[in-house]
């Protein structure tokens, strides 16, 4: 049996969040899984309990609503669950021209990526402080290092996560809380993204990773108390190029790659019932 500390993972029903849940379960950690209602969270929790013999609590919450974030906190407090690791993974990605996106989409994206992460981190800070050494892992993106067309708002939210994590890290280190930011490239998170990733330009295609490859790297990095975690050799290589290449070439390269990035896929479209969210909203990191 593991100890009585918990790891809280948001957006745990699919993609990277699910991989985090499985990876942490494998490492004998008790889990608090948070995701949207009806996203298969109970089945996942059941699978983890049966296979890894850990405690799993499930909370179905829409974290784009800050009231839900507070409710989650209150319910966790009421059950007196002690949190040692907080993984702010829930996020909404997109690849589209600014003029193509609706205000609702951008609002949702900022609320989930920026606001939910901020609120949850603040609310659970005391809980984490009581259970030191404790850890916060925020899921950023490599998009926070590059200025990419079609990723204006998404990249902006992830830059916030990057900035927030590194600043907070300096503040809370002395309290025994270690903050890391994960900056992955493209990941095969859900079905439509996986399909999109298959049709992308080669430069982004070769860097695509699977969630089950990223999760262990991220948890290792977190426990080693790294400030920034960039998973994958190719992503690391891109980061190195970024430092070496002159700006003019970098701009050309990103423009070229992004101009060839397709934002929809026939089969992905077929799957998505909601027409607005269908081809454009994709969870990237």
């Amino acid at each position: 049996m593991p100890d009585n500390y918990y790891t809280l993972i948001t957006g745990a029903s699919e993609g990277l969040g699910k991989a985090f849940a499985l990876e942490c379960g494998k490492r004998n950690m008790n889990l608090i899984l948070v995701a949207l209602p009806d996203s298969g969270l109970y089945e996942l929790a059941d699978f983890i309990r049966r296979n890894f013999n850990v405690l799993v609590e499930v909370f179905e919450k829409d974290l784009t609503d800050s009231t839900s974030c507070r409710e989650l906190f209150q319910e966790v407090q009421r059950q007196k669950l002690r949190i040692r690791i907080l993984i702010n993974n829930a996020g909404l990605g997109s690849t589209l021209l600014f003029g193509e996106g609706s205000t609702e989409l951008f609002e949702k994206q900022i609320k989930l990526n920026v606001l939910a992460t901020t609120i949850l981190t603040r609310l659970f800070l005391d809980n984490l402080e009581r259970n030191t050494p404790s850890y916060i892992l925020n899921v950023g993106s490599m998009a926070s290092f590059f200025f990419l067309p079609k990723k204006q708002v998404y990249g902006g939210t992830k830059s916030y996560i990057h900035f927030f994590s590194k600043s907070l890290r300096k503040e809370v280190k002395r309290d025994g809380i270690h903050v890391s930011v994960l900056c992955p490239g493209g990941i095969n998170t859900n079905l439509s993204v996986t399909l999109l990733n298959k049709t992308g330009p080669w430069m982004s295609k070769i860097s695509i990773m699977n969630p089950e490859e990223v999760a262990p790297i991220a948890i290792n990095g977190l426990l080693k108390r790294k400030a920034v975690i960039v998973p994958g050799i190719i992503n690391k290589f891109f980061m190195m190029l970024d430092k070496l290449l002159p700006d003019i070439i970098k701009t050309r390269l990103t423009d070229y790659t992004m101009s060839r990035l397709k934002t929809d896929n026939h089969y992905a479209q077929m799957l998505n019932r909601q027409s607005i969210e269908a081809a454009t909203i994709t969870k990237v990191a």
Binding site: K18, L22, N210, E212
Partner: peptide
């Protein structure tokens, strides 16, 4: 995984 997979089990790898 450890137990035989049934219909409701999540897919573990991509």
């Amino acid at each position: 995984y450890k137990e035989p997979t049934s219909e409701k089990d999540p897919r573990v790898i991509s």
